[in-house]
Design a protein around this nucleic acid. Structure first.
Length: 509
RNA sequence: GCCCCGUUCGUCUAGCCAGGUCAGGACGCCAGGUUUUCAUCCUGGUAACAGGGGUUCGAAUCCCCUACGGGGUACCA
Protein backbone atom coordinates (compact mmCIF):
# COMPACT_ATOMS: atom_id res chain seq x y z
CA UNK A 1 0.00 0.00 0.00
CA UNK A 2 1.50 3.27 -1.09
CA UNK A 3 1.11 6.38 1.00
CA UNK A 4 -1.74 8.71 0.24
CA UNK A 5 -0.93 11.27 -2.39
CA UNK A 6 -1.21 14.87 -1.21
CA UNK A 7 -0.44 17.89 -3.37
CA UNK A 8 -0.92 21.59 -2.90
CA UNK A 9 -1.26 24.77 -4.85
CA UNK A 10 0.25 27.61 -2.87
CA UNK A 11 -0.23 31.03 -4.44
CA UNK A 12 0.82 34.36 -3.06
CA UNK A 13 -2.00 36.91 -2.82
CA UNK A 14 -0.08 39.59 -4.68
CA UNK A 15 -2.58 40.08 -7.49
CA UNK A 16 -4.81 38.14 -9.84
CA UNK A 17 -3.79 34.61 -10.72
CA UNK A 18 -2.28 34.45 -14.19
CA UNK A 19 -3.07 31.55 -16.52
CA UNK A 20 0.35 30.02 -15.88
CA UNK A 21 -0.62 29.74 -12.23
CA UNK A 22 -3.99 28.28 -13.16
CA UNK A 23 -2.24 25.65 -15.26
CA UNK A 24 0.07 24.75 -12.36
CA UNK A 25 -2.97 24.35 -10.14
CA UNK A 26 -4.71 22.31 -12.83
CA UNK A 27 -1.81 19.87 -13.13
CA UNK A 28 -1.78 19.49 -9.35
CA UNK A 29 -5.50 18.86 -9.43
CA UNK A 30 -5.32 16.32 -12.27
CA UNK A 31 -2.47 14.54 -10.55
CA UNK A 32 -4.32 14.42 -7.24
CA UNK A 33 -7.58 13.16 -8.74
CA UNK A 34 -5.83 10.66 -10.98
CA UNK A 35 -4.12 9.17 -7.95
CA UNK A 36 -7.14 9.46 -5.68
CA UNK A 37 -5.18 11.86 -3.52
CA UNK A 38 -5.88 15.14 -1.81
CA UNK A 39 -5.57 18.66 -3.20
CA UNK A 40 -4.77 21.49 -0.82
CA UNK A 41 -5.01 25.27 -1.23
CA UNK A 42 -2.50 27.11 0.90
CA UNK A 43 -1.97 30.86 0.85
CA UNK A 44 1.61 32.02 1.05
CA UNK A 45 1.23 35.52 2.40
CA UNK A 46 4.55 35.95 4.17
CA UNK A 47 5.34 39.18 2.38
CA UNK A 48 3.11 41.81 3.91
CA UNK A 49 4.47 44.54 1.64
CA UNK A 50 3.18 42.83 -1.48
CA UNK A 51 -0.22 41.86 -0.14
CA UNK A 52 -3.02 42.98 -2.46
CA UNK A 53 -6.56 43.23 -1.11
CA UNK A 54 -9.01 41.04 -2.98
CA UNK A 55 -6.36 38.80 -4.49
CA UNK A 56 -7.18 35.84 -2.28
CA UNK A 57 -10.90 36.12 -3.00
CA UNK A 58 -10.06 36.36 -6.69
CA UNK A 59 -8.04 33.15 -6.55
CA UNK A 60 -10.85 31.26 -4.84
CA UNK A 61 -13.41 32.51 -7.31
CA UNK A 62 -11.19 31.72 -10.29
CA UNK A 63 -10.87 28.09 -9.23
CA UNK A 64 -14.60 27.82 -8.68
CA UNK A 65 -15.15 29.02 -12.21
CA UNK A 66 -12.60 26.58 -13.61
CA UNK A 67 -14.03 23.68 -11.67
CA UNK A 68 -10.79 23.01 -9.83
CA UNK A 69 -11.79 21.79 -6.40
CA UNK A 70 -9.79 21.62 -3.20
CA UNK A 71 -10.13 19.02 -0.49
CA UNK A 72 -8.41 21.12 2.15
CA UNK A 73 -7.45 24.75 2.39
CA UNK A 74 -8.45 28.25 3.31
CA UNK A 75 -12.02 27.69 2.13
CA UNK A 76 -12.97 24.31 3.57
CA UNK A 77 -10.38 23.86 6.30
CA UNK A 78 -8.89 20.46 7.10
CA UNK A 79 -6.78 18.60 9.64
CA UNK A 80 -3.55 20.46 8.88
CA UNK A 81 -4.74 24.06 9.21
CA UNK A 82 -4.51 26.90 9.33
CA UNK A 83 -3.82 27.12 5.62
CA UNK A 84 -2.76 30.73 5.50
CA UNK A 85 0.90 31.21 6.35
CA UNK A 86 0.32 34.51 8.09
CA UNK A 87 -1.85 32.54 10.53
CA UNK A 88 0.92 30.00 11.02
CA UNK A 89 3.45 32.70 11.84
CA UNK A 90 4.25 31.25 15.26
CA UNK A 91 5.49 27.88 14.07
CA UNK A 92 8.43 28.83 11.88
CA UNK A 93 10.90 30.38 14.33
CA UNK A 94 11.36 27.09 16.19
CA UNK A 95 12.51 25.36 13.02
CA UNK A 96 14.87 28.17 12.15
CA UNK A 97 16.26 28.10 15.68
CA UNK A 98 16.68 24.34 15.42
CA UNK A 99 18.82 24.84 12.35
CA UNK A 100 20.93 27.40 14.22
CA UNK A 101 21.39 24.95 17.09
CA UNK A 102 22.49 22.23 14.71
CA UNK A 103 24.99 24.60 13.11
CA UNK A 104 23.18 24.75 9.76
CA UNK A 105 22.01 28.32 10.12
CA UNK A 106 23.10 31.50 11.86
CA UNK A 107 21.93 34.90 12.98
CA UNK A 108 22.88 37.89 10.85
CA UNK A 109 22.62 41.56 11.71
CA UNK A 110 23.64 43.26 8.49
CA UNK A 111 21.82 46.34 7.30
CA UNK A 112 20.63 46.62 3.69
CA UNK A 113 23.41 49.16 3.16
CA UNK A 114 26.02 46.73 4.45
CA UNK A 115 24.73 44.06 2.06
CA UNK A 116 24.84 46.46 -0.85
CA UNK A 117 28.40 47.45 0.05
CA UNK A 118 29.50 43.82 0.23
CA UNK A 119 28.12 43.04 -3.22
CA UNK A 120 29.84 46.02 -4.71
CA UNK A 121 33.14 45.15 -3.14
CA UNK A 122 32.98 41.57 -4.27
CA UNK A 123 32.18 42.71 -7.76
CA UNK A 124 35.16 45.06 -7.81
CA UNK A 125 37.38 42.29 -6.50
CA UNK A 126 36.23 40.23 -9.45
CA UNK A 127 34.89 37.46 -7.26
CA UNK A 128 33.13 34.62 -9.03
CA UNK A 129 30.12 34.80 -6.72
CA UNK A 130 28.97 38.08 -5.29
CA UNK A 131 26.52 36.70 -2.79
CA UNK A 132 26.40 36.13 0.94
CA UNK A 133 28.21 32.79 1.08
CA UNK A 134 31.10 30.80 2.48
CA UNK A 135 33.58 33.28 1.10
CA UNK A 136 31.93 36.47 2.21
CA UNK A 137 30.08 35.59 5.38
CA UNK A 138 33.06 36.05 7.68
CA UNK A 139 33.41 39.69 6.76
CA UNK A 140 29.79 40.39 7.70
CA UNK A 141 28.08 40.83 11.04
CA UNK A 142 26.69 37.47 12.06
CA UNK A 143 26.89 34.77 14.68
CA UNK A 144 29.63 33.03 12.72
CA UNK A 145 31.88 36.05 12.53
CA UNK A 146 31.19 37.64 15.91
CA UNK A 147 31.98 36.44 19.41
CA UNK A 148 29.22 34.59 21.20
CA UNK A 149 28.55 37.19 23.87
CA UNK A 150 28.29 39.93 21.27
CA UNK A 151 25.60 37.90 19.49
CA UNK A 152 23.76 37.31 22.76
CA UNK A 153 23.95 40.99 23.62
CA UNK A 154 22.49 42.05 20.30
CA UNK A 155 19.76 39.44 20.48
CA UNK A 156 18.72 40.32 24.02
CA UNK A 157 18.84 44.02 23.18
CA UNK A 158 16.20 43.29 20.58
CA UNK A 159 18.32 44.23 17.61
CA UNK A 160 16.78 43.24 14.30
CA UNK A 161 18.19 40.03 12.88
CA UNK A 162 17.61 37.49 10.20
CA UNK A 163 18.43 33.80 10.18
CA UNK A 164 20.45 32.57 7.23
CA UNK A 165 21.17 29.04 6.12
CA UNK A 166 24.80 28.06 6.23
CA UNK A 167 25.45 26.50 2.86
CA UNK A 168 28.01 23.70 3.22
CA UNK A 169 31.16 23.37 1.16
CA UNK A 170 32.08 20.26 -0.71
CA UNK A 171 29.98 17.50 -2.23
CA UNK A 172 27.52 18.34 -5.03
CA UNK A 173 23.88 18.33 -4.06
CA UNK A 174 22.04 15.73 -6.10
CA UNK A 175 18.31 15.55 -6.53
CA UNK A 176 15.66 14.18 -8.80
CA UNK A 177 12.86 15.93 -10.63
CA UNK A 178 10.01 13.94 -12.17
CA UNK A 179 10.19 16.03 -15.33
CA UNK A 180 13.85 17.00 -15.52
CA UNK A 181 15.29 13.77 -14.11
CA UNK A 182 18.59 13.97 -12.23
CA UNK A 183 20.15 17.34 -11.51
CA UNK A 184 23.39 18.09 -9.74
CA UNK A 185 24.43 21.40 -8.22
CA UNK A 186 27.72 22.57 -6.75
CA UNK A 187 26.95 24.13 -3.34
CA UNK A 188 29.58 26.80 -4.02
CA UNK A 189 27.12 28.34 -6.46
CA UNK A 190 24.49 28.69 -3.72
CA UNK A 191 24.21 31.55 -1.27
CA UNK A 192 23.29 31.77 2.40
CA UNK A 193 19.63 32.58 1.80
CA UNK A 194 17.59 34.28 4.47
CA UNK A 195 15.19 31.79 6.03
CA UNK A 196 13.66 34.00 8.67
CA UNK A 197 13.12 37.71 8.15
CA UNK A 198 13.59 40.53 10.61
CA UNK A 199 9.85 41.18 10.60
CA UNK A 200 9.25 37.83 12.26
CA UNK A 201 8.06 36.11 9.11
CA UNK A 202 9.74 33.19 7.36
CA UNK A 203 10.82 33.54 3.75
CA UNK A 204 9.23 31.37 1.09
CA UNK A 205 11.97 28.76 1.37
CA UNK A 206 11.55 27.99 5.05
CA UNK A 207 7.77 28.33 5.17
CA UNK A 208 7.36 26.19 2.09
CA UNK A 209 9.49 23.33 3.35
CA UNK A 210 8.05 23.41 6.87
CA UNK A 211 4.45 23.55 5.68
CA UNK A 212 4.88 20.91 3.02
CA UNK A 213 6.33 18.64 5.67
CA UNK A 214 3.69 19.41 8.28
CA UNK A 215 0.89 19.04 5.76
CA UNK A 216 2.33 15.73 4.60
CA UNK A 217 2.69 16.85 1.01
CA UNK A 218 3.96 13.98 -1.15
CA UNK A 219 4.46 15.76 -4.48
CA UNK A 220 5.44 19.34 -5.16
CA UNK A 221 4.31 20.38 -8.62
CA UNK A 222 5.26 23.98 -9.32
CA UNK A 223 6.67 26.36 -11.92
CA UNK A 224 10.16 26.08 -13.34
CA UNK A 225 11.17 29.34 -11.68
CA UNK A 226 11.62 27.30 -8.50
CA UNK A 227 14.09 24.81 -9.94
CA UNK A 228 17.16 26.90 -9.04
CA UNK A 229 16.13 26.94 -5.38
CA UNK A 230 15.45 23.23 -5.17
CA UNK A 231 18.97 22.43 -3.89
CA UNK A 232 18.35 24.85 -1.03
CA UNK A 233 15.06 23.13 -0.25
CA UNK A 234 16.71 19.72 -0.36
CA UNK A 235 19.27 20.94 2.14
CA UNK A 236 16.52 22.19 4.41
CA UNK A 237 14.75 18.83 4.37
CA UNK A 238 18.03 17.16 5.14
CA UNK A 239 18.99 19.47 8.00
CA UNK A 240 15.53 19.32 9.54
CA UNK A 241 15.79 15.55 9.50
CA UNK A 242 12.97 15.08 7.01
CA UNK A 243 14.86 13.79 4.02
CA UNK A 244 13.23 10.36 4.22
CA UNK A 245 9.77 11.84 3.81
CA UNK A 246 10.81 14.57 1.39
CA UNK A 247 8.20 15.08 -1.36
CA UNK A 248 8.90 14.32 -4.97
CA UNK A 249 9.32 17.35 -7.19
CA UNK A 250 8.05 18.26 -10.63
CA UNK A 251 9.02 21.59 -12.15
CA UNK A 252 6.69 22.69 -14.92
CA UNK A 253 7.83 24.56 -18.02
CA UNK A 254 6.79 28.19 -18.22
CA UNK A 255 4.26 29.84 -20.50
CA UNK A 256 5.93 32.17 -23.00
CA UNK A 257 4.78 35.26 -24.87
CA UNK A 258 2.90 34.64 -28.17
CA UNK A 259 5.57 36.74 -29.87
CA UNK A 260 8.98 38.10 -29.02
CA UNK A 261 11.01 37.11 -26.02
CA UNK A 262 10.26 36.15 -22.46
CA UNK A 263 7.56 34.69 -20.34
CA UNK A 264 3.92 35.52 -20.71
CA UNK A 265 2.95 38.66 -18.83
CA UNK A 266 -0.04 40.83 -18.16
CA UNK A 267 1.30 43.37 -20.67
CA UNK A 268 1.13 40.84 -23.52
CA UNK A 269 -2.58 40.50 -23.00
CA UNK A 270 -3.09 44.25 -23.12
CA UNK A 271 -0.86 44.59 -26.15
CA UNK A 272 -2.23 41.66 -28.17
CA UNK A 273 -5.81 41.85 -26.94
CA UNK A 274 -6.31 38.51 -25.20
CA UNK A 275 -6.89 37.73 -21.52
CA UNK A 276 -4.01 36.62 -19.33
CA UNK A 277 -6.25 36.08 -16.32
CA UNK A 278 -9.12 33.64 -15.80
CA UNK A 279 -11.41 36.34 -14.43
CA UNK A 280 -11.54 40.05 -15.03
CA UNK A 281 -9.52 41.97 -12.47
CA UNK A 282 -9.66 45.56 -11.36
CA UNK A 283 -6.49 46.76 -9.72
CA UNK A 284 -7.49 48.21 -6.35
CA UNK A 285 -4.82 50.91 -6.54
CA UNK A 286 -4.82 52.10 -10.13
CA UNK A 287 -8.35 51.05 -11.02
CA UNK A 288 -6.91 49.49 -14.16
CA UNK A 289 -9.05 46.68 -15.56
CA UNK A 290 -7.59 43.49 -17.02
CA UNK A 291 -9.63 41.17 -19.23
CA UNK A 292 -10.71 37.75 -18.05
CA UNK A 293 -11.49 34.54 -19.92
CA UNK A 294 -14.83 34.31 -18.17
CA UNK A 295 -15.90 37.81 -19.15
CA UNK A 296 -14.63 37.37 -22.71
CA UNK A 297 -17.09 34.53 -23.13
CA UNK A 298 -14.93 31.44 -22.81
CA UNK A 299 -16.46 28.27 -21.43
CA UNK A 300 -14.62 27.12 -18.32
CA UNK A 301 -14.27 23.58 -19.67
CA UNK A 302 -12.81 24.86 -22.95
CA UNK A 303 -10.41 27.07 -21.03
CA UNK A 304 -9.29 24.19 -18.84
CA UNK A 305 -8.95 21.88 -21.87
CA UNK A 306 -6.73 24.45 -23.60
CA UNK A 307 -4.54 24.93 -20.53
CA UNK A 308 -4.14 21.21 -19.97
CA UNK A 309 -2.71 20.76 -23.48
CA UNK A 310 -0.23 23.59 -23.03
CA UNK A 311 2.71 21.51 -21.90
CA UNK A 312 1.10 18.12 -21.65
CA UNK A 313 -0.47 15.62 -24.01
CA UNK A 314 -1.41 11.96 -23.70
CA UNK A 315 0.56 10.90 -26.78
CA UNK A 316 -2.56 10.30 -28.83
CA UNK A 317 -4.17 12.61 -31.36
CA UNK A 318 -7.08 13.46 -29.10
CA UNK A 319 -7.38 17.18 -28.36
CA UNK A 320 -10.81 17.58 -26.82
CA UNK A 321 -11.03 16.23 -23.30
CA UNK A 322 -13.66 16.33 -20.62
CA UNK A 323 -12.27 16.94 -17.15
CA UNK A 324 -12.86 13.25 -16.37
CA UNK A 325 -10.81 12.24 -19.39
CA UNK A 326 -8.04 14.62 -18.35
CA UNK A 327 -8.03 13.13 -14.88
CA UNK A 328 -7.86 9.56 -16.11
CA UNK A 329 -5.21 10.22 -18.75
CA UNK A 330 -2.96 12.72 -16.99
CA UNK A 331 0.55 11.81 -15.94
CA UNK A 332 3.51 13.94 -14.86
CA UNK A 333 5.83 11.85 -17.00
CA UNK A 334 4.18 13.19 -20.13
CA UNK A 335 4.64 16.84 -19.22
CA UNK A 336 7.03 18.61 -21.58
CA UNK A 337 10.36 19.98 -20.58
CA UNK A 338 10.41 23.11 -22.69
CA UNK A 339 8.45 26.33 -22.35
CA UNK A 340 5.26 26.74 -24.36
CA UNK A 341 4.53 29.83 -26.39
CA UNK A 342 0.95 30.82 -25.73
CA UNK A 343 -1.35 30.90 -28.79
CA UNK A 344 -4.52 32.97 -28.37
CA UNK A 345 -5.85 31.77 -31.75
CA UNK A 346 -5.93 28.13 -30.79
CA UNK A 347 -7.64 29.10 -27.57
CA UNK A 348 -10.52 30.46 -29.65
CA UNK A 349 -10.62 27.24 -31.63
CA UNK A 350 -11.05 25.27 -28.42
CA UNK A 351 -13.98 27.46 -27.45
CA UNK A 352 -15.51 26.95 -30.88
CA UNK A 353 -15.26 23.18 -30.49
CA UNK A 354 -17.05 23.33 -27.15
CA UNK A 355 -19.67 25.71 -28.49
CA UNK A 356 -20.48 23.43 -31.40
CA UNK A 357 -20.61 20.34 -29.21
CA UNK A 358 -22.84 21.77 -26.53
CA UNK A 359 -26.58 21.31 -26.89
CA UNK A 360 -28.66 24.03 -28.52
CA UNK A 361 -30.70 24.22 -25.33
CA UNK A 362 -27.66 25.00 -23.22
CA UNK A 363 -26.40 27.66 -25.60
CA UNK A 364 -29.89 29.11 -26.04
CA UNK A 365 -30.10 29.52 -22.31
CA UNK A 366 -26.95 31.64 -22.26
CA UNK A 367 -27.94 33.48 -25.41
CA UNK A 368 -31.28 34.46 -23.88
CA UNK A 369 -29.59 36.80 -21.44
CA UNK A 370 -27.69 38.44 -24.29
CA UNK A 371 -30.92 39.06 -26.19
CA UNK A 372 -32.40 40.55 -23.05
CA UNK A 373 -29.33 42.73 -22.49
CA UNK A 374 -29.80 44.15 -25.99
CA UNK A 375 -33.22 45.29 -24.91
CA UNK A 376 -35.34 42.83 -26.87
CA UNK A 377 -38.12 40.57 -25.74
CA UNK A 378 -36.77 37.05 -25.29
CA UNK A 379 -38.76 34.65 -27.46
CA UNK A 380 -39.68 31.11 -26.49
CA UNK A 381 -36.90 28.58 -26.01
CA UNK A 382 -37.93 26.68 -29.13
CA UNK A 383 -37.28 29.70 -31.31
CA UNK A 384 -34.05 30.52 -29.51
CA UNK A 385 -32.77 26.99 -29.95
CA UNK A 386 -33.47 27.15 -33.67
CA UNK A 387 -31.54 30.41 -33.91
CA UNK A 388 -28.62 28.90 -32.02
CA UNK A 389 -28.65 25.80 -34.16
CA UNK A 390 -28.55 27.86 -37.34
CA UNK A 391 -25.56 30.02 -36.46
CA UNK A 392 -23.48 28.37 -33.77
CA UNK A 393 -21.04 26.80 -36.19
CA UNK A 394 -20.11 30.22 -37.51
CA UNK A 395 -18.96 31.68 -34.20
CA UNK A 396 -16.47 31.12 -31.42
CA UNK A 397 -18.44 32.67 -28.58
CA UNK A 398 -22.04 32.81 -27.45
CA UNK A 399 -22.04 36.61 -27.56
CA UNK A 400 -21.03 36.46 -31.22
CA UNK A 401 -24.31 34.73 -32.00
CA UNK A 402 -25.96 38.12 -31.69
CA UNK A 403 -23.84 39.53 -34.51
CA UNK A 404 -24.90 36.62 -36.69
CA UNK A 405 -28.54 36.51 -35.72
CA UNK A 406 -29.76 39.92 -34.61
CA UNK A 407 -32.08 40.03 -37.64
CA UNK A 408 -34.24 37.37 -36.01
CA UNK A 409 -35.12 39.93 -33.38
CA UNK A 410 -35.03 43.24 -35.21
CA UNK A 411 -35.52 44.26 -38.86
CA UNK A 412 -32.43 45.69 -40.57
CA UNK A 413 -32.20 49.47 -40.49
CA UNK A 414 -29.38 49.69 -43.00
CA UNK A 415 -28.27 47.61 -45.95
CA UNK A 416 -24.69 46.63 -46.55
CA UNK A 417 -23.50 49.12 -49.15
CA UNK A 418 -20.86 46.98 -50.77
CA UNK A 419 -23.24 44.12 -51.37
CA UNK A 420 -25.95 46.42 -52.68
CA UNK A 421 -23.57 48.12 -55.05
CA UNK A 422 -22.23 44.87 -56.34
CA UNK A 423 -25.32 42.68 -56.48
CA UNK A 424 -28.39 44.93 -56.72
CA UNK A 425 -29.05 45.30 -60.42
CA UNK A 426 -31.40 47.50 -62.43
CA UNK A 427 -34.16 44.90 -62.48
CA UNK A 428 -33.68 43.44 -59.00
CA UNK A 429 -36.51 45.39 -57.42
CA UNK A 430 -39.00 44.25 -60.01
CA UNK A 431 -37.80 40.67 -59.83
CA UNK A 432 -38.09 40.61 -56.05
CA UNK A 433 -41.65 41.89 -56.23
CA UNK A 434 -42.57 38.96 -58.43
CA UNK A 435 -40.78 36.44 -56.23
CA UNK A 436 -42.39 37.92 -53.14
CA UNK A 437 -45.77 37.14 -54.59
CA UNK A 438 -44.73 33.56 -55.08
CA UNK A 439 -43.49 33.44 -51.52
CA UNK A 440 -46.64 34.86 -49.97
CA UNK A 441 -48.70 32.40 -51.96
CA UNK A 442 -46.98 29.56 -50.13
CA UNK A 443 -49.24 27.72 -47.75
CA UNK A 444 -48.13 26.61 -45.28
CA UNK A 445 -45.54 29.31 -44.84
CA UNK A 446 -42.75 26.91 -44.17
CA UNK A 447 -39.20 26.45 -45.35
CA UNK A 448 -39.58 23.61 -47.85
CA UNK A 449 -42.77 24.70 -49.62
CA UNK A 450 -41.48 28.26 -49.95
CA UNK A 451 -38.21 27.02 -51.33
CA UNK A 452 -39.87 24.66 -53.80
CA UNK A 453 -42.24 27.30 -55.08
CA UNK A 454 -39.51 29.86 -55.62
CA UNK A 455 -37.26 27.31 -57.25
CA UNK A 456 -40.00 26.23 -59.63
CA UNK A 457 -40.84 29.83 -60.51
CA UNK A 458 -37.24 30.74 -61.21
CA UNK A 459 -36.69 27.67 -63.28
CA UNK A 460 -39.67 28.51 -65.40
CA UNK A 461 -38.40 32.00 -65.97
CA UNK A 462 -34.88 30.65 -66.49
CA UNK A 463 -33.36 32.81 -63.80
CA UNK A 464 -30.57 31.58 -61.49
CA UNK A 465 -31.22 31.33 -57.76
CA UNK A 466 -28.21 33.47 -57.06
CA UNK A 467 -29.62 36.52 -58.76
CA UNK A 468 -32.63 36.65 -56.49
CA UNK A 469 -31.29 35.32 -53.23
CA UNK A 470 -28.77 38.06 -52.57
CA UNK A 471 -31.37 40.77 -53.07
CA UNK A 472 -33.83 39.04 -50.78
CA UNK A 473 -31.12 38.48 -48.21
CA UNK A 474 -30.25 42.17 -48.20
CA UNK A 475 -33.89 43.05 -47.57
CA UNK A 476 -34.41 40.46 -44.86
CA UNK A 477 -31.12 40.53 -42.94
CA UNK A 478 -29.36 43.66 -44.20
CA UNK A 479 -26.22 41.92 -45.41
CA UNK A 480 -25.10 39.46 -48.01
CA UNK A 481 -24.25 36.64 -45.67
CA UNK A 482 -26.02 34.33 -43.27
CA UNK A 483 -27.83 31.03 -42.88
CA UNK A 484 -30.45 29.53 -45.19
CA UNK A 485 -32.82 32.26 -46.29
CA UNK A 486 -35.98 30.15 -46.55
CA UNK A 487 -35.52 29.02 -42.97
CA UNK A 488 -35.20 32.65 -41.94
CA UNK A 489 -38.48 33.45 -43.71
CA UNK A 490 -40.30 30.67 -41.94
CA UNK A 491 -38.90 31.76 -38.59
CA UNK A 492 -39.73 35.46 -38.83
CA UNK A 493 -43.09 34.68 -40.42
CA UNK A 494 -45.02 35.78 -43.44
CA UNK A 495 -46.01 39.21 -42.22
CA UNK A 496 -42.49 40.22 -41.22
CA UNK A 497 -41.06 38.77 -44.44
CA UNK A 498 -43.40 40.83 -46.56
CA UNK A 499 -42.80 43.95 -44.55
CA UNK A 500 -39.01 43.70 -44.77
CA UNK A 501 -39.09 42.87 -48.47
CA UNK A 502 -41.32 45.76 -49.38
CA UNK A 503 -39.35 48.17 -47.26
CA UNK A 504 -36.08 46.99 -48.77
CA UNK A 505 -37.31 47.18 -52.35
CA UNK A 506 -38.59 50.64 -51.75
CA UNK A 507 -35.50 51.97 -49.94
CA UNK A 508 -32.90 50.50 -52.24
CA UNK A 509 -34.91 51.00 -55.36
C1' G B 1 28.82 37.99 -15.16
C1' C B 2 27.68 33.34 -12.74
C1' C B 3 24.30 28.97 -11.95
C1' C B 4 20.26 25.76 -13.57
C1' C B 5 16.84 24.10 -17.39
C1' G B 6 15.69 23.73 -22.40
C1' U B 7 15.90 23.62 -28.34
C1' U B 8 11.22 18.96 -34.00
C1' C B 9 6.79 22.94 -39.20
C1' G B 10 5.01 30.33 -37.89
C1' U B 11 2.45 28.12 -33.08
C1' C B 12 0.97 23.69 -29.77
C1' U B 13 3.13 19.09 -30.26
C1' A B 14 3.95 13.05 -31.59
C1' G B 15 8.35 10.39 -32.32
C1' C B 16 13.71 10.43 -28.22
C1' C B 17 14.27 6.87 -22.50
C1' A B 18 14.63 0.84 -25.19
C1' G B 19 18.87 4.28 -32.78
C1' G B 20 16.28 1.75 -38.75
C1' U B 21 8.64 4.62 -40.57
C1' C B 22 8.19 9.22 -47.02
C1' A B 23 9.45 12.82 -39.31
C1' G B 24 2.72 12.04 -37.74
C1' G B 25 -1.46 15.21 -35.82
C1' A B 26 -3.76 19.99 -34.51
C1' C B 27 -4.06 25.59 -34.97
C1' G B 28 -2.96 29.20 -38.71
C1' C B 29 -2.32 30.10 -43.84
C1' C B 30 -3.14 28.75 -49.23
C1' A B 31 -5.90 26.03 -53.11
C1' G B 32 -10.01 23.04 -54.80
C1' G B 33 -14.96 20.88 -53.87
C1' U B 34 -20.04 21.37 -51.63
C1' U B 35 -23.65 25.52 -50.85
C1' U B 36 -28.71 30.58 -52.93
C1' U B 37 -24.46 33.98 -49.95
C1' C B 38 -21.00 33.82 -45.96
C1' A B 39 -19.48 30.42 -42.47
C1' U B 40 -19.41 25.28 -41.49
C1' C B 41 -17.97 20.81 -43.77
C1' C B 42 -14.84 17.67 -47.16
C1' U B 43 -10.21 17.07 -50.07
C1' G B 44 -5.40 18.62 -50.96
C1' G B 45 -1.16 21.77 -50.11
C1' U B 46 2.37 24.75 -47.18
C1' A B 47 6.12 24.08 -43.51
C1' A B 48 10.48 21.49 -38.86
C1' C B 49 14.68 17.65 -36.39
C1' A B 50 19.42 25.03 -34.13
C1' G B 51 24.79 24.33 -35.97
C1' G B 52 29.23 21.43 -35.71
C1' G B 53 31.84 17.20 -34.21
C1' G B 54 31.80 12.22 -32.68
C1' U B 55 29.72 6.78 -31.65
C1' U B 56 27.29 3.40 -35.28
C1' C B 57 26.17 -0.38 -41.09
C1' G B 58 22.51 3.39 -39.77
C1' A B 59 21.26 9.29 -35.42
C1' A B 60 15.59 13.71 -34.62
C1' U B 61 16.74 9.64 -31.14
C1' C B 62 23.18 8.22 -27.65
C1' C B 63 27.87 11.49 -26.27
C1' C B 64 30.65 16.28 -26.59
C1' C B 65 31.14 21.43 -28.08
C1' U B 66 28.98 25.97 -29.85
C1' A B 67 24.88 29.05 -30.65
C1' C B 68 20.24 30.49 -29.26
C1' G B 69 15.96 30.58 -25.87
C1' G B 70 13.99 30.43 -20.83
C1' G B 71 14.53 30.79 -15.60
C1' G B 72 17.34 32.06 -11.24
C1' U B 73 20.88 35.08 -8.91
C1' A B 74 16.13 39.98 -2.78
C1' C B 75 14.96 40.33 4.62
C1' C B 76 9.57 38.69 -3.37
C1' A B 77 7.08 34.59 -4.04
Amino acid sequence: MTKDIRVRFAPSPTGPLHIGGVRTALYNYLFARHNKGKMILRIEDTDQARFVPGAEEYIVEAFKWCGIEFDEGIENGGPFGPYRQSERKGIYLDYAAELVRKGHAYYAFDTPEALEKMRKELEEEGARYTSYNAHSRMRMKNSLSMPNDEVKRRLSAGEPYVIRIRIPEGEPIRFHDMIRKDVEVDPATLDDKVLYKSDGMPTYHLANVVDDHLMKITHVIRGEEWLPSLPLHVLLYRYLGWEDSMPEFAHLPLLLKPDGKGKLSKRDGDRLGFPVFPLQWTDPKSGEVSKGYREDGYFPDAFVNMLALLGWNPGTEQEIFSIEELISQFSIERVNRSGARFDPEKTKWFNHQYLVNKSDAEIANEFASIVASKGYQVPGTGFLEKVVNLVKERVNFVHEIWDQASFFFVAPETYDEKTVKKRWKENTGQLLKEVLEVITASDPFERDPIHDKVAAYLEEKEIGMGQVMIGMRICLVGSGTGPDLFTIMEMIGKEETVERMEKGIQKIG
